[in-house]
Amino acid sequence: MPPLTDDTGIERHHLPYVERLGARPVEAVELVVIHCTELPDLATAREYGERLLYSDSGTGNSGHWYIDRDGRVVEYVPATRIAHHVRGRNASSVGIELVNRGRWPHWLDAGHQAMEEAYPEPQIAALLGLLDRLRTALPALACIAGHEDLDTERVPATDDPSVLVARKRDPGPLFPWPRVLASCGLRRVP
């Protein structure tokens, strides 16, 4: 089915397993988590989102909304469903994925931990617009965090297991936290 676009300009292109994700009321959402895809483009992010990783539920990992570099916003999972995007916080949060290479394709190599792709202006403007809409649509939403704030586990590097690297570094050092926090009205949680 082709994506549907609503009056806010957000495309609805739900994942095939979205109805198998746990349901929840919008009042349960207190936190928005900012991610970067750490993939080259939105099409590859879609492929990863469609992968079935949990045989018991027939679902996979995904954020709720994806924002491409040009500012296009696509909803993969509605806020009324619990997406698998961050350990231990899925039931009370929504995830926003920004298309960005991050450490792709050597995510956990010790020598490849720099995140050098900046977030373009159209993408950040779209993020701020989405956050504004979410503050209206999700009455309990009060906090924001980066994936790296919530998942601080260090794991052996794939190229040198004697070195530990961060499992998650997104959205990374080039994400404009001061600008986002100044305009989103949400409190950043450590």
Rank of each mutant, 00 (worst) to 15 (best):
G9E: 06
G9D: 03
I10R: 06
I10P: 01
R12V: 14
R12W: 15
R12F: 11
H13K: 05
H14K: 07
H14D: 05
H14R: 13
L15R: 05
L15P: 00
Y17T: 01
Y17C: 01
Y17G: 01
E19H: 11
R20G: 00
L21I: 07
L21E: 00
G22K: 14
A23M: 13
A23R: 15
A23T: 13
A23N: 07
A23E: 12
R24P: 02
R24H: 09
R24F: 13
V26G: 00
V26M: 07
V26W: 08
V26K: 13
E27T: 15
E27C: 04
A28D: 11
A28Y: 10
V29K: 08
V29G: 02
V29E: 03
V29A: 04
V29H: 06
E30C: 06
L31M: 15
L31C: 11
L31Y: 15
L31S: 08
L31H: 14
L31Q: 11
V32G: 02
V32Y: 09
V33F: 12
I34K: 07
I34D: 04
I34E: 02
H35R: 05
H35N: 04
C36M: 12
C36L: 13
T37C: 05
T37H: 06
E38D: 07
L39H: 02
L39K: 07
L39T: 06
P40T: 09
P40I: 14
D41I: 11
D41S: 11
L42F: 12
L42V: 06
L42D: 01
A43F: 07
T44K: 08
A45I: 07
A45D: 10
A45M: 14
A45E: 13
R46C: 05
R46A: 03
E47H: 13
E47F: 12
E47T: 09
Y48Q: 10
Y48H: 12
G49T: 01
E50A: 03
E50Q: 08
R51C: 03
R51F: 08
